[in-house]
Design a protein around this nucleic acid. Structure first.
Lengths: 110, 110
DNA sequence: CCGTATCCCTAATGATACTG
DNA sequence: CAGTATCATTAGGGATACGG
């Protein structure tokens, strides 16, 4: 761990383009692979797989395969992943508030 | 804004390798350029400049030049930047807690 | 002291086609 | 439905040398 800042450690776990979004949508509960993917419309097939694989490797989500046809796979947050909930919500909230304040600024200027 | 998630908006503002660290260190107050840079030892000259420029452009920090020799430049958080304080501290806190819990796990396993 | 300008490398992301 | 493989592109990052 460099920079002796736990902050960096956290960013390395969730600080990518897609991870926060995937985690955020899983706050609702377990989701089937296709459903989860549709919640992040712009994500490519490759990046979706890569993202969930890494999140699984890091123990933030779990993957459950149902032995049925057609295949069915569900992803859900692990306990460790759930511990990110308040952080994820705060990230979302800050963005929302910031956008709102920007709008106010624009309105005032016009 | 894509994915209609403010979360993403936030990540685009601070979700890079160095921005969170720079912002975090500025929570203490204004810092002279060289001092701030030393707080992030591994950062290259180029990335430091690039990082503070972008943070300034996004209105999260401000840059003050003192007309003296040798040159003196100070960076500090803007009001908008300061609004990130609790978020930054929570990022740091989560990492710290997670590292601790990992250590416990390891100890238990040994 | 502070910052810019180059050059270079690697990791991250994306489009497309294909398999069990 | 879920996932893999491949190829191509770009963005992020770093080393070094130079300039006000």
């Amino acid at each position: 761990m460099k920079n002796n800042c736990p902050l960096n450690y956290t960013m390395q776990l969730i600080g990518t383009k897609w991870k926060p979004l995937v985690l955020f949508h899983l706050l609702e509960g377990a989701l089937r692979s296709g459903v989860l993917k549709k919640k992040v419309p712009e994500i490519s097939n490759k990046m979706f797989t890569q993202t969930v694989r890494e999140l699984e490797k890091d123990g933030l989500i779990s993957r459950k395969v149902f032995p049925v046809v057609p295949p069915k796979v569900e992803y859900k947050l692990t306990e460790r992943g759930e511990s990110l909930e308040s952080l994820l919500r705060q990230l979302d909230k800050w963005g929302l508030e910031d956008i709102k304040s920007l709008n106010h600024t624009n309105f005032d200027a016009l």
